[in-house]
Simulated scan of single mutants.
Amino acid sequence: MRRRVLLLTTALAAIAVAACSIAIYVVTEDALRAQIAERVERNAAKLAVSSSTQMSPNALGFANDGTGPMRVAMITAAGEFIAQDGSTEPFLTESGQMSTSLQPLVRGETGQVSTEADGFLMCGITAVGGDIVLVAEPESTMAPTMHTLVVWLSALGGLLILLAAAVGAAAAGIGLRPVERLTRATRRVASMGDLTPITVTGKDELAQLAVGFNAMLRALDSSRARQSQLVVDAGAELQAPLTALRTNIELLIAVQAEGGPGLDRATEAALRTDVLDQLDELTGRIHRLVEDAREASPQAMSS
């Protein structure tokens, strides 16, 4: 039982730690993603405010403020696509078409688009001069922070599980002491016949079980005492008739033996009759003792 309690406690602790770790991981990941999206929108807004039709690729560089590997590009009012580092990812597809999520911005259906595509968080804003400023940052910038978080959560989770196992072992040791006392008592009764009651502490279910066990021990002790008394009573009850019967039988044997003392026929017949009467009396006493034992058995059980 101790092992089962320990395993149950450890399993519950592991489930709780895993659930909390997953929740922390998800919340942290969402928070970091929100920070990246905010940074992308902020830098796109800076470019949109300062943009003009004369903007060159080098002028786009100030959008990358050193907080991450940002991708910056623009679409001029004339429709020319200009990328800061010459890379079209993630704004254009491999076939050279504008990303589907940015097409409403190009068609003039909206003035700003914030979206997530191909592992990038992107923001596009149409400037006053008609230029479209595009800023993107890969979600992979979260990887170092998330890796560090996983390491810390794993270490802390393992520590908490070990702590829960230690607490579970201590609680099982304390909580199962009454059961251990009952186990030792049953072994003592089985091996030594010792019916000494065990100590009862508390008022919980285990304490009530110990009280019931002590009542059983008292019943067994009472039954043992009744059996001992029955043996004593049987010995006292049968001793006198057995002694008289043995004396008369020995006398009959001596009379019938060759060279034994002679008795007249009347005395010998009376002796034989006395032996039969004593046998009947002995038989009656034995029946009476058996009946008394049968009556005492349910009384011992009920007590």
Results as ranks from 00 to 15, higher is better:
R246D: 00
G168A: 08
L6P: 02
F62D: 02
V150N: 15
L102V: 03
Q278N: 15
R294I: 01
R218V: 03
A11L: 07
S191W: 00
E205T: 00
D65H: 06
R218G: 15
S154E: 10
E295Y: 00
N248V: 01
N58Q: 15
G61E: 11
G259A: 07
S140K: 06
A44W: 06
M1R: 09
P138H: 07
L245C: 13
M216E: 03
R39A: 15
T183D: 09
Q256R: 14
S99L: 13
L282T: 04
A170Y: 02
E80P: 05
G130S: 02
N64K: 12
A45W: 04
L47N: 06
I174S: 12
L209A: 10
A190S: 01
T267G: 10
P241R: 13
L242D: 02
S99N: 08
S87Q: 12
V17K: 14
A63E: 04
A300M: 05
Q299G: 03
T88H: 10
R188D: 00
E281D: 15
L209K: 10
S50I: 01
A155M: 13
M192K: 12
F81C: 05
S302P: 00
A18C: 06
A73T: 03
D274P: 11
A23K: 11
V49P: 04
L271I: 01
R265P: 04
R42N: 15
Q35W: 01
D194E: 01
G129E: 14
L279C: 14
L160Y: 09
V151W: 14
D118V: 00
E268P: 13
V135G: 10
A37L: 07
A44M: 08
D277Y: 15
A166Q: 06
A269D: 01
T88E: 13
T145A: 09
S140C: 04
Q112Y: 08
A219P: 10
D204K: 11
A172D: 14
I15F: 05
A234G: 11
T148F: 09
I132R: 08
A296D: 02
T88F: 11
T243E: 08
I24C: 07
A13H: 05
G66K: 01
P197R: 08
E139D: 12
R107W: 05
A143I: 02
V151D: 12
A136L: 05
G96M: 07
S101A: 11
V150I: 09
